Simulated assay, not measured.
Amino acid sequence: MTTNNNSELSTEQRDELLGTLKARFEKNMNRHEGLDWAKVQAKLEASTDKLWSLHEMENTGGEPDVVGHDEESGEYIFYDCTAESPKGRRSICYDQEALESRKANKPENSALNMAAAMGIELLTEEQYRELQKLGNFDMKTSSWVKTPDHIRKLGGALFCDRRYDTVFVYHNGAESYYAARGFRGSLRV
């Protein structure tokens, strides 16, 4: 993952990202029926920190796209919409505690650490199920989801995938990691 310590994109990076997001928005109108790209773009251009987060989502293979609009707050909601769990965010355990608990063969990072560094949130189980209504995601991979505290306190963490035309929620030790498991994020702009 490429990180940018000052969270600022160059004009070229900004323009390239906006072009990518616009093309994806127009190609996948079923994800955001009734929304207008010009309004989304205006909101993005006014939020350089959010643009940087979207750049990180894109840079790690997430293919972020607008999946909703919160009428009350006026925020647009982006989820990672790549077909499989983002390639640049796989082979990671759930959180810092899990990372520290591994004595050997530690993964390079954790889902919660990466999400925080990117300025995004892990999808909740409910958000993951909403995403799956927009297409078929994680048919070969799986994605960590935000785990309730009572499960995490007992050492577990949750992940989801789609198999047999059904969304499944599973549990694993939070310290586990697999080449086919990453995480999907959300961002409100």
Rank of each mutant, 00 (worst) to 15 (best):
L18M: 08
T166G: 04
Y170C: 13
K140S: 14
L123A: 08
F183V: 01
Y170E: 11
H150Q: 13
R90F: 09
A83V: 09
F137Y: 15
F25N: 01
H32C: 13
G62Q: 00
H171E: 12
C160H: 04
N105T: 00
G155T: 04
M57Y: 03
M114Y: 00
G119R: 02
I120T: 15
H55F: 11
D161Q: 10
D149C: 03
R24L: 03
E75K: 15
M118W: 01
L122F: 05
Y128G: 04
G173H: 06
G74K: 09
P148K: 05
V66I: 15
N6H: 12
T166F: 09
T82Y: 02
T147H: 08
R163V: 08
M29G: 09
P148I: 01
R24Y: 00
E8C: 15
T141N: 04
E130G: 08
Q41K: 10
R102T: 12
G19M: 03
G62D: 00
A104H: 11
F25A: 15
E126Q: 14
L134I: 03
E72Q: 15
G61I: 07
F159Q: 02
D138G: 11
N59R: 13
G135E: 07
K87P: 02
V40F: 02
K87R: 09
E121G: 06
T124L: 05
S7R: 14
G185F: 06
R162Q: 14
T147R: 11
N105F: 06
H32Q: 10
L99Q: 05
V66F: 01
L51C: 01
A174T: 00
P107E: 09
K27Y: 04
W144Y: 07
M114D: 08
K87Y: 13
R31S: 05
Y178F: 13
G156K: 05
M118K: 01
P86S: 04
I120H: 00
N30I: 04
S142Y: 08
H69R: 03
D149Y: 01
E45W: 07
Y177V: 03
S85E: 00
T141P: 03
L123T: 06
E126Y: 12
A115H: 05
L44V: 06
L17N: 05
R152N: 14
M1R: 10
A174M: 10
E75Q: 15
H171L: 11
A180Y: 06
L131Y: 00
G19N: 14
L44P: 02
S101C: 08
K39D: 13
H32V: 10
R31E: 10
E75G: 05
K133G: 08
T3H: 07
V40L: 05
N113A: 13
A23I: 02
L9Y: 08
I151G: 12
G62N: 02
H32N: 13
N109P: 10
F137R: 04
Q96E: 15
N5W: 02
N172R: 06
Y76Q: 01
G62E: 00
N5E: 07
K87T: 06
F137G: 00
A179I: 07
R181E: 00
K43T: 13
W52H: 15
N172A: 15
Q96P: 03
C81K: 01
I151H: 14
K103A: 08
R129V: 10
A23E: 10
L122C: 07
D165C: 11
V169K: 09
N105Y: 12
V189G: 03
K27H: 04
F159V: 03
A116T: 12
V169H: 04
A111V: 06
D36E: 12
V67C: 05
G34M: 11
